[in-house]
């Protein structure tokens, strides 16, 4: 029963992405940005003269960083604002099922976006001798990173009923993990520097996009995801 409720909620959310323009705008913008920089502009695949998708992973890391909060911002904030949260939680739905459903819907949307970039992979593989392992690991990294940011986005959306606040808060939390921890830790030595650098999404993602799958990286992203989801659940259950 638990599974079917989560699936029902996830399906509704995914449909609503495609019924509104959200999904199409996200897909077009994501493919546009990443395609442009991967194939056409700057140090693109042809300039580098190397058959890999490093450029794409570098761009996708940033585009997803901005796009995910835009997808997650309304997930809970809007339900709270319009009162539909009350409808859901007075039916046989508990906060955990609700949040899992929403999380899965967002993750599915990102996976659809990533699936559309598979032609990049196929093209590069036909041009040169691509490292299949590293590419796969890069995609896995993107998915894990997205999962963590979705959870952070849901958390931001769970504590407010204002979508803009949710968006900005998600970006703010995101930027710390994405980038600021890296910057700070690079100037520090010893255990503190190591700790901060271990908490950096950037560092974990970069190592995965180079083709190194370390359990530490996977645990890090999984932990961040669980923490985000757990906090969202706590905040949604709190005001009862």
């Amino acid at each position: 029963m638990m599974k079917s409720i989560v699936a029902t909620i996830a399906r509704r959310e995914l449909n609503s992405f495609f019924d509104s323009l959200t999904a199409y705008i996200l897909l077009i913008a994501f493919l546009g940005f990443s395609g442009f920089f991967t194939w056409i502009y700057g140090s693109d695949v042809f300039m580098r003269k190397e058959a890999d998708l490093d450029v794409f992973f570098g761009i996708a890391k940033w585009t997803l960083f901005f796009f995910i909060p835009a997808v997650t911002m309304k997930m809970l904030a809007e339900e709270k604002k319009t009162g539909t949260l009350e409808i859901l939680l007075t039916k046989a739905v508990n906060p955990r099922q609700l949040i899992l459903g929403k999380y899965l819907a967002c993750l599915m949307l990102i996976m659809i976006a990533l699936a559309f970039t598979l032609p990049y992979y196929i093209s590069v593989a036909r041009i040169g001798d691509i490292d299949h392992g590293a590419t796969l690991s890069g995609y896995l990294g993107l998915m894990l990173m997205s999962s963590a940011y979705i959870a952070i986005g849901l958390f931001a959306s769970s504590i407010t009923n204002n979508q803009i606040v949710a968006f900005l808060l998600a970006l703010l939390i995101g930027i710390v993990f994405h980038f600021i921890l890296d910057v700070i830790s690079s100037g520090m030595r010893g255990w503190a520097g190591n700790l901060l650098s271990d908490l950096s999404v950037g560092k974990h993602f970069d190592s995965m996009s180079r083709g190194v799958i370390d359990t530490k990286d996977i645990l890090f992203f999984a932990g961040l995801t669980l923490l985000g989801l757990f906090l969202s659940e706590t905040f949604i259950s709190k005001n009862k």
Binding site: R12, D19, T82, G83, T90
Partner: peptide, 11 residues
């Protein structure tokens, strides 16, 4: 049926 009857407008 809650007060103000909130519904998913886009559905």
């Amino acid at each position: 049926l809650p007060e103000h009857n909130p519904l998913y407008e886009e559905m």
